[in-house]
Design a protein around this nucleic acid. Structure first.
Lengths: 207, 207
DNA sequence: GTCTATAGCGGGATAGAC
DNA sequence: GTCTATCCCGCTATAGAC
């Protein structure tokens, strides 16, 4: 009985789960095989090496995030403020639904920053998107509605405020001895608060 | 010839360097011994296990950071805004001087969040400091100078904006193909920009 | 395609001479 | 205290039977 796709799919799903939980080094091929209810040799049969399988899962997750932000930034119908609100809402929601992702991705960003950076660079659309957004910011500045700010700095602020709290959530809950559900409420509020904060900080108040 | 302290010190310094560069799993006792110009057995003689040595280095680094923020938050002579400015300035400066630290600490926060959280909880002064700051915020709110915001949310914002950019610096430089020196300039500007941003966002404008 | 068994290596830890 | 040599385990990867 042929069950190529079944087995392959089962391995990918198992790998996704275990890698995202434990990261590259802490995950063993035995773990993955066990989770997929097959033998360790099969994992090598389908994916040749642990690295191959890992990068498959990593790129998959990373692409999701990058596509989200690109979709928003290239939407001509949104002004700067709507884009900010959309990014914040999408990211915080996404991380709430997939709580392992921030740690998983950040772990790899820390372990191997150049690899991910290079890969983003290859994806040329990213640089273009960045420039387009930068132009839009410049125009808004000339209209006198916002302060001058570099696109990089603005994006860094947005991503920082969305991602970092998700990463430190387990530590903070331990440190101040609070329930994770309570922290989730705080995060829920941040879906609008963070955007408000950033917009208020760059917006020039009308008289 | 007795050289307890020399050897012990050499090991700690070597461990600090290698662990901070490569993290726990990627570091081997052989690496550390080589860096300290001694034998691997000596490292075990002085510190019994890899974990012992690692936590020594980790706690050392982590304490530095926590003490910095506690010192600022408990300084009665500073108002809310001065505290925000001081924390931002101290942290960004610190991370610029020790570029490995953010990655190192964050790596461990991701790998073992509960352990660090628990340890902070044991350090009871931290919870008190947090409450004191919370009270100060409440008073400022009653004076009508700032919007209502929880101490946790505010601190999360500050730390996020200081730490996250330092962590992703190598990736971002790769992604947009910019020199790290250029990125450092951007970070330098953030020593005041980040505080401005946060203060502008919570401050209630006088009429 | 799927399994069992094992090669082969790199790591932490330790015994024991000096 | 310091060294060399070695133990022993757990991991990735593969050989080979079915």
């Amino acid at each position: 009985m042929r069950q190529d796709r079944n087995t392959e799919q089962a391995i990918i799903e198992a790998a996704r789960k275990i890698f995202q939980e434990k990261g590259f080094k802490e995950t063993t091929m035995r773990d993955i095989a066990a989770e997929a209810n097959i033998n360790m040799a099969m994992v090598h049969y389908y994916f040749r090496s642990k690295e191959n399988l890992f990068f498959l899962v990593l790129n998959e997750a990373f692409s999701l995030l990058v596509e989200k932000i690109i979709t928003i930034l290239t939407n001509d119908e949104l002004d700067i403020f709507e884009k900010i609100r959309a990014i914040v809402r999408e990211y915080i929601t996404f991380f709430t639904e997939k709580p392992y992702l921030p740690q998983f991705l950040m772990g790899e960003v820390i372990r191997n920053p150049e690899r991910i950076g290079k890969q983003m660079l290859k994806n040329m659309s990213f640089l273009n998107v960045f420039r387009t957004f930068s132009d839009q910011l410049e125009k808004e500045y000339e209209k006198g509605t916002i302060q001058h700010i570099s696109a990089l700095s603005l994006l860094l602020n947005i991503i920082s405020l969305c991602v970092f709290p998700a990463i430190v959530k387990p530590m903070v809950c331990g440190a101040i001895n609070c329930d994770t559900a309570l922290f989730d409420l705080l995060i829920e509020d941040r879906k609008t608060e963070v955007a408000d904060l950033i917009i208020k900080a760059i917006q020039i108040k009308k008289i």
